[in-house]
Amino acid sequence: MYNYELTQLKSPDFPFIIIFDLFIGGIAAGAFLVAVLLLAFGGKINKAGLHRAYYITMALLPVYGLLLILKLEQKERFVNVMWQAREGSLMINFQSPMSLGAWVLNVFIVFAAVGFLYALRKDGMLQFAWAEKLYKSAVWLHEGPAAKVFLSLGAVFAGWFAMYLGVLVTTSHLPAWTATPFIPTLWAFSAVVTGVSVVILLLVFTNRGSKLDDSIHRLDNIVKSVIVANIAMIIVFVLALGQWSETVTRGMYGALLWGGVVGAGLIVPLLLKMKPKLLGQKFTLIFSSVLVLVGGFILRYVVMMGPMSYW
């Protein structure tokens, strides 16, 4: 018969590309978030290489934007999200997390660009004379008297960007997405754990001598802590889903969630990180980081595709 929740409500059937979008956006935001927090409030110790997180963010954001456009049915009209041609005005709908998210992305890109310039200056790369003032401004914003304010604002927008797609799916009628407000939290923890893992990989592969060892191990310590929080959050999320938990725990999705995300993507990397001598320190760092990334991707797949395939 016509059961309201099961047969009347509809899945948006977002295309598979949204999983890549969420994954890439999470890494970009997570890397940036942790970098600005540590640069602002990390104390006076060696932070060598941390600024390189900005390269990751700047490299991934254009890909994110492109994927966002590719998932639209009318790709050539993407600008309508920012410009309302019918009324000739800027387009913003405060009730729509998708509309707000588009503007958050724009602001975040500005912060990412400033960070990118700062990283280039720190590494002495691509120094153009005509852009001298821009480099100096970026350094001032990072090291000047207002640095903490600027970096804190950057952290807020990075965090918002990491979570807006969580708020977006929570603001819907698909029962499994609206049963709990914890999807944004899930994205936040996963963004940090995957973002920092990519920063670790970048630092490991660009480490000349042992200059970056300290930063790498400190970042690794962050990943260990956030992995524990991430596992706890996944359990809370599944419990909070109540009667709809089977949308992410049934069949293949359940196997992927418990085996792929929690097992292979979080617990195994955590154990490896706790016993780094088992496989050798460098190999452990690389292997565990890759596992965390695979787990982060699967998590997004399960939380998005599980409920959508149910309806």
């Binding site: 952290a155 944004p184 936040a188 400190r218 260990k224 956030v226």
Partner: peptide, 20 residues
């Protein structure tokens, strides 16, 4: 959703700084 976002931003920031 927004409240859980604010909570998670603080939580993840705090966990990161404390671990560091």
């Amino acid at each position: 959703g927004y409240w859980s976002s604010v909570f998670s931003l603080f939580a993840v920031g705090l966990v990161s700084l404390l671990s560091f």
